[in-house]
Design a protein around this nucleic acid. Structure first.
Lengths: 213, 213
DNA sequence: CGTCCCGGCGAACACCTGTTTACTGAATGA
DNA sequence: TCATTCAGTAAACAGGTGTTCGCCGGGACG
């Protein structure tokens, strides 16, 4: 297609990327049952089956691996968010679609979701910051998309922002609840979905009658 | 007052309680910069200034100390919650009072708040469960108190519950945001308060027009 | 008074940790 | 073809860890 600088990844590079990915996978797997700050470098290399020193060929730190996992977990989600928000829809249908999308994402990537939920307030500052920045970006995108709705006429930028943050936080809470449901803790998935739908409905109602109540 | 069974705490017991409290304090202090699963038993005893083996005289585990910290952090809050909710008020005033109470609590007990926020989805199952149970109790109390409002006429128990959970989750998020503000990360305290007030106003609006929107 | 209880101590146990060092050997590129 | 690059190795380093043991000494109590 385009003869621009796509330098044909040499076999060596692909192999390096392969083991780097293996490290990330092993890390994510171990993080199902512990938090990043208690994860050991040797633990990971042992699972992958290589010498501890080789870890440094790919990451400086464990927190370095952590922020890489943040990208992997949240990076691919921006497209999904835009897709959900850009389709002009009946409001109820949009909520339904949103909740279903969250449920599916949690079902398909439970370890990533667990990682983000756990490390969002976890003990590793760099990872916390990376997650916070990514969630901020989500809030920006949501605010921008919501501003296009006719319901948002007359809303200040600050109000749009606070609404977007409310939505983003709610999505994170819902994802975490879905995760608990998938593991048998707490209510089952359908209950979580129903609660989430109603909460979103309630917020939407508040949004519609804002400044008039 | 009452000559019931209050067995006059013997000097030995008070001393034991004293060092137990010292262990809890030291743990909480260390948990400012790390998570529970990475906290070392020896770290704590070193801070307190006693032999590692003495730890077992007070706690079986580190997770045991963790659930004790959960009680200490959240146990005293139920009275506060009831107090806020039981005063019949103008709605705006109630919101104002709620946000101010959260801000004050975070200011006065930052380490406890940080601990709860961090371990709520953290790596120690027992502590996670303890926090979850306590937050469930809060949701129960909020639901019960809100049901007394005239706005709640015709609300099903399930709807009350989903509203209460929305409030509780929002309070936790707000407390965490206040904490970030206190540490210079993110927006300052006044911005957090304004956002929180508006979000609560929006939810209240949604509540007022529920089932009519 | 004498006995028991029990919180705290110090030492030792076996094990695991992150990091550095010098090295190998295959893919690389002139 | 030959020199170079570099992902991965093995070994050693200096620490740290949780847990167990027997012992001490002062409050508790019959």
């Amino acid at each position: 297609m385009s003869h621009t600088s796509v330098p044909t990844p040499t076999p060596r590079e692909t192999q390096k990327a392969r083991t780097r990915c293996a490290l990330l996978d092993a890390g994510l797997r171990l993080l199902e049952n512990q938090s990043l700050s208690s994860l050991g470098l040797r633990e990971i290399t042992r699972v992958v089956g290589m010498a501890p020193a080789a870890f440094y060929r790919h990451f400086r730190d464990l927190s370095d691996l952590g922020v890489a996992l943040v990208e992997e977990s949240l990076g691919s989600l921006h497209a999904v968010v835009r897709e959900i928000l850009e389709v002009p829809d009946d409001e109820a249908a949009r909520i339904e679609r949103t909740v279903e999308t969250i449920a599916r994402y949690v079902r398909e990537h439970p370890t990533h979701v667990r990682f983000v939920a756990r490390e969002r307030h976890g003990g590793v500052p760099a990872v916390r910051a990376a997650i916070g920045a990514e969630l901020d970006r989500f809030a920006d995108e949501v605010a921008e998309a919501l501003a296009a709705d006719e319901v948002s006429a007359g809303w200040s930028a600050e109000d749009m922002r606070m609404l977007a943050e409310l939505y983003v936080d709610h999505v994170v809470m819902t994802a975490s609840a879905f995760l608990d449901a998938a593991l048998g803790e707490g209510p089952d998935e359908e209950s979580v979905a129903r609660t989430a739908r109603r909460q979103l409905m309630l917020i939407s109602t508040g949004r519609r009658y804002w400044r008039e109540g």
